[in-house]
């Protein structure tokens, strides 16, 4: 598509919208590089007087902030960052893989019962808080609490309905005749799905992966109730920057939040090109 020229009124409206949307992010990034004195200064300090990386440093060396005369927290964020990466990446991979094959199965081979997809989604009808407590009790009994295996299992269980449904809609959109032509060309069913179906829903696969990853990456409640000391994730770690002596460490929180944003922004840019619609343009007559 050729770039379109933007009219002045539209440009103003879109500019205002952008400013509105991006302001919290601007504030977050600014806070992350503010020294403690500027964190909750009144009147507000928009741009830090002397930008510093001390907040980022404090994340991994809790005592670094003391040079500003602020009491630190004892725990480094390193474990939380690695915990988040482990839990999110593993659960996203598992969820999308299972979801992909369920989606193909439901879309192409589901016979009779039209309620199967609804049954899958029914797990999402309960508010997470309602199932959190049972999970804690069950996981305590089977020793899955305070372990990454347990957390990943919960994340997969929670996001699988999303990935299945989302991927199913992409498979539904793909004319089944393309796979059938492949089978008549000499492929087995499995090979037709692996080499024809999946590459053609690549865009859907990327966007589903991204969505599921965001869900897992920012999940707070399950991570909180299922973790004691062995495991941690970034959202849980964020809640820990409250000290008795210095109140909330806004700058350190902001720094961790900025770090947490990075993989999502990077991922968004990476898959941007694959999200284009019309992957199957030309496959069928119309």
């Amino acid at each position: 598509m050729a770039p379109r020229k933007l009219g002045i009124p539209l440009a103003v409206v879109m500019g205002a919208g952008l400013a509105f949307t991006l302001f919290p992010i601007f504030w977050l990034v600014m806070t992350a590089i503010k020294p403690p004195i500027d964190w909750n200064a009144s009147p507000a300090v928009w741009l830090p007087s002397c930008p510093t990386f001390i907040n980022f440093l404090t994340l991994f060396d809790p005592d670094a902030i003391r040079e500003y005369g602020v009491g630190g927290v004892s725990q480094s964020a390193t474990a939380a960052v690695f915990g988040s990466i482990l839990a999110s990446v593993a659960s996203t991979c598992i969820s999308v893989c299972i979801g992909l094959f369920s989606a193909i199965g439901i879309s192409r081979y589901s016979k009779g019962s039209r309620s199967t997809p609804l049954v899958i989604l029914s797990g999402r009808m309960f508010p997470p808080a309602a199932i959190a407590v049972p999970f804690v009790i069950i996981f305590s009994t089977v020793s899955l609490i305070d372990s990454y295996v347990g957390l990943i299992a919960v994340y997969v269980a929670v996001t699988l309905p999303f990935s299945t449904w989302m991927l199913k809609s992409f498979v539904d959109d793909l004319p089944r005749e393309i796979e059938e032509a492949a089978m008549l060309d000499g492929m087995t069913r499995v090979k037709a799905h692996l080499t024809v179906t999946i590459p053609l829903i690549k865009g859907g696969l990327f966007s589903t992966t991204m969505l599921v990853f965001i869900l897992n990456w920012s999940e707070f409640m399950f991570a909180l109730v299922l973790s004691y000391s062995n495991i941690s994730t970034i959202p849980v770690q964020l809640s820990k920057y409250v000290t008795a002596t210095a109140g909330t460490l806004y700058g350190v929180q902001a720094a961790l939040a900025v770090l947490a944003m990075l993989p999502l922004v990077a991922g968004g840019f990476l898959i941007q090109g694959h999200l284009a619609r019309g992957m199957t343009f030309g496959a069928i007559k119309q």
Partner: peptide
Amino acid sequence: VEPRARDVAMIFDNLALYPN
């Protein structure tokens, strides 16, 4: 008998070309 083992070829009414 599986489609691939029947040794028939088919042109679909929507053509079903590989778009990629």
